[in-house]
Simulated scan of single mutants.
Amino acid sequence: MTRTHQHAPRPGEGSHQPGHGHDGHQEHGDAGQAEILDLDAEVLAEHVESITAWLPLNNEPRQIVDLGCGTGAGTFALLTRFPDSHVTAVDLSAGHLQILREKARDRGVERRVRTVQADLDSDHWPDLGTPDLVWASASMHHMADPDRALARVHDLLAPGGLFAVVELDGFPRFLPADAPESRPGLEERVHAAADGLHAERVPHRGANWGPMLSAAGFTIADERTFTINIEGERSEAIGRYAYRGLQRIRGAVAPALSPEDRAALDDLLDTDSPNSILRRDDLAVRTERTVWAARRA
């Protein structure tokens, strides 16, 4: 991705955003995104585990690369699923990689993790070894030239190795359709406005990766869509996840909303308001993730 493709990250997205600078503004953005990534990992941990358990592997991988690792949701799920593995975690953000290293130390797995800071849209990738498994969760759609990136992953993999592309089919929804009471359907209109903004900046978001993987020389081993519906009472983090996610989107979509919708959204995001999203007891996380498992012949 080039600088012209910068966009506000959404909950559940990976953090590989090629071309971003490392000035103070970006560091501040990294901190906010790191919080959302951590909430995403906490709320959706069970579903990430189910994806790693589903992977159609011929053998248990020993060397794994996590492309666009963020703060480590996939990295740690893979380390748990494959106890004899070593993961090379790759991301553009130095801040996210630092958080990941701290987590690895806290969990006692620092010897099984190597972090690499890299812009995967650059002309040259760093040496990432010859992995048995490459994992890319919500990161491939950020690539400026995904066909080139897919070809590089193909050449990187060991013969017979597996490439798992995990992508969100849609932005997570949290509110009931008739909420909030003052502006029913507000969340859908917010997402529609965000989708319009992102369509040009992130054209590969929501793409069908199957044909692109085949064109890059992969054989599609399997494809599956995982439906996620987590009721709010299962985790108090869902409220914070909804709040931070909608708060982060608000700055980008506010000009595209009607004054009434903008006021209703601000009311939801006002922690002192009786209508604050943090005070609701009817939240849920509803989304889908599609996984393409592709094998190097």
Rank of each mutant, 00 (worst) to 15 (best):
M1G: 15
T2V: 03
Q6P: 11
A8N: 13
E13R: 08
G14C: 05
S15N: 09
H20S: 03
H22W: 10
H25Q: 09
H25W: 10
E27S: 11
A31D: 14
L37P: 05
E46V: 03
I51Q: 00
I51E: 04
W54Y: 01
N58K: 11
P61Y: 10
Q63T: 15
V65E: 04
L67F: 11
C69D: 00
T71M: 13
A73L: 07
F76G: 08
L78I: 01
H86F: 00
H86I: 01
H86D: 02
L92K: 00
S93V: 12
H96F: 04
K103Q: 05
A104M: 13
A104I: 06
R105F: 07
D106P: 02
V109Q: 04
R111W: 11
D121M: 03
S122T: 04
D123K: 07
D123V: 07
H124Y: 02
D127C: 11
L128N: 07
L128D: 11
G129V: 05
P131G: 03
S139Y: 05
H141P: 03
H141K: 10
H141G: 04
A149Q: 02
A151L: 10
H154R: 13
L156G: 01
G160E: 07
L162H: 02
L162S: 05
G170K: 14
F171H: 15
P176V: 07
P180Y: 04
R183T: 11
R183M: 09
R189A: 06
H191C: 01
A193S: 09
L197A: 15
H198Y: 09
A199W: 08
R205H: 13
G206D: 09
A207H: 06
A207N: 08
W209H: 12
G210S: 14
G210T: 14
T219S: 12
I230P: 00
I230T: 06
R234H: 06
R240L: 14
R240G: 12
Y243M: 05
L246M: 12
L246C: 00
I249M: 15
G251S: 01
A254L: 10
A256M: 12
D267L: 05
D267V: 09
L269V: 06
D270I: 03
N275A: 13
L283Q: 01
E288D: 12
A293S: 13
